[in-house]
Design a protein around this nucleic acid. Structure first.
Length: 137
DNA sequence: GCCAACGTTGGC
DNA sequence: GCCAACGTTGGC
């Protein structure tokens, strides 16, 4: 199983909204690197949900429930999306500030490639963040 | 195929 | 609201 992290601005689409919706399609990605990461996602992969701009913290874990398919909101036809469903919230959100202070997480794509909105997370990074968030990965 | 201009993201 | 990082576009 692979692990990922997706960013969303909470005033556009928040974790609470995802919990309310039970499931959503992750549309709107218009960046090839992010899109390639979406393409590599498999059903059952676990995904951290990060709030950008406001919050600046990882708030929950969701899961891929439908693999890459065309994004109907993309007029160019170049990009796709996946469906995700919430699994559980973190008991304690893990903030960007904490991540930056954690030596084991200094190579995380969230910091190294701050503008990327869909990124892979390594197994050790996943375990570490779960531990910080008070949940079992 | 290079590179300057431009647009967008996202932390501060 | 500013600005750094960086991806994309378009002229040559």
């Amino acid at each position: 199983m692979n692990h990922w992290l997706v960013k969303s601005e909470p005033f556009k689409y928040s974790w609470d909204q995802l919990v309310k919706d039970k499931k959503t399609f992750w549309n709107g990605v218009r960046n090839y690197q992010a899109s390639n990461n979406l393409k590599a996602m498999k059903n059952g992969d676990r995904v951290f949900f990060y709030h950008s701009n406001e919050g600046l913290e990882i708030v929950g874990i969701c899961e891929v429930v439908k693999e890459y398919y065309p994004d109907h909101t993309d007029e160019s036809g170049r990009f796709g999306m996946v469906d995700v469903a919430p699994v559980m919230p973190l008991k304690k959100p893990v903030t960007l500030a904490e991540i930056k202070q954690t030596p084991e997480l200094e190579d995380i794509a969230l910091i190294r490639q701050s503008r990327l909105s869909v990124m892979p997370i390594t197994a050790p990074q996943w375990k570490k963040i779960c531990a910080m968030g008070g949940v079992k990965g």
